[in-house]
């Protein structure tokens, strides 16, 4: 579904990613972990089209999309969710969800079905559908940003640190949502510092250090390598 090979990128002339290669298959959750400043966010933003790579290639559904912008990528089904639960604060919750469908041209029927699914998983969003998004708590905003991405029905979802700034107790519903989303055939790539939480749902794990991938393996191998045990099942 998604193949990244030899990817290099950075801010200005400052290199951040060095020769990153990995792939993500449909229906699986891939965890990217690593220290602060290891380049995880840069990697997601480069794949998502916000940063232009300086070398290497990104292939999506077998086609080369290196250097494509989100304007091109989102309609094709590759969607990045930024960290920090960023919503459009002055719009209503429902309008935030509607905006998710602008770029993907999701049809009316598909949109309605998607919204029904969202409201089933996150009933609080239905309850607050007409409230301004800024009145939501951080966790609810994270649910909202994911919902906004969900209605665009991406084939690849890139999700940057969904737990950032959230109470940990809020994470299970969000992780479970991602898990069932992946089961529907979407490749989900998440960057997460709370590795325990993410390993519980991830199929594979990737460890980055100073801009390079230093480990790539199954969730169990990852756990063995790093000594981190997945959250209790």
């Amino acid at each position: 579904m998604l193949e990244v090979s030899g990817l290099c990128a950075g801010y200005g002339r400052l290199p951040v990613l060095r020769d990153v290669s990995f792939s993500a298959a449909e229906g699986e959750i891939l965890l990217i972990a690593g220290e602060n400043g290891a380049g995880k966010t840069t990697l997601l933003q480069t794949i998502g089209g916000l940063i232009k790579p300086t070398a290497g290639s990104i292939r999506f559904e077998g086609r080369d999309v290196t250097g494509a912008t989100p304007e091109d990528l989102v309609p094709r089904g590759l969607r990045l969710v930024l960290d920090g639960h960023r919503v459009f604060p002055e719009l209503s919750v429902f309008d935030n969800i509607r905006l998710g469908a602008v770029a993907s041209k999701t049809g009316k029927v598909a949109f309605d079905t998607a919204v029904d699914q969202i409201f089933e998983v996150f009933p609080i969003l239905k309850q607050k559908a007409n409230d301004k998004a800024r009145s939501l708590s951080g966790g609810q905003q994270q649910m909202l940003t994911l919902s906004q991405a969900f209605v665009s029905q991406p084939k690849v979802l890139l999700c940057d640190e969904p737990s950032l700034g959230l109470a940990m107790a809020l994470m299970p519903p969000i992780m479970n949502f991602l898990r069932s989303w992946a089961k529907s055939g979407t490749a989900v790539v998440i960057v997460e510092q709370h590795v325990q939480l993410a390993l519980a749902v991830a199929a594979r794990g990737l460890l980055m250090q100073r801009g390079s991938v230093v480990f790539d393996g199954t969730a169990d191998e990852f756990a063995a390598e790093t000594g981190i045990i997945a959250a209790p099942h």
Binding site: A167, A169, M171, P172, L197, V201, A230, A231, P232, H233
Partner: peptide, 10 residues
């Protein structure tokens, strides 16, 4: 207690 994480097994 509810603050603590419980991830249900798939």
């Amino acid at each position: 207690k509810p603050l603590f994480v419980t991830v249900r097994h798939a």
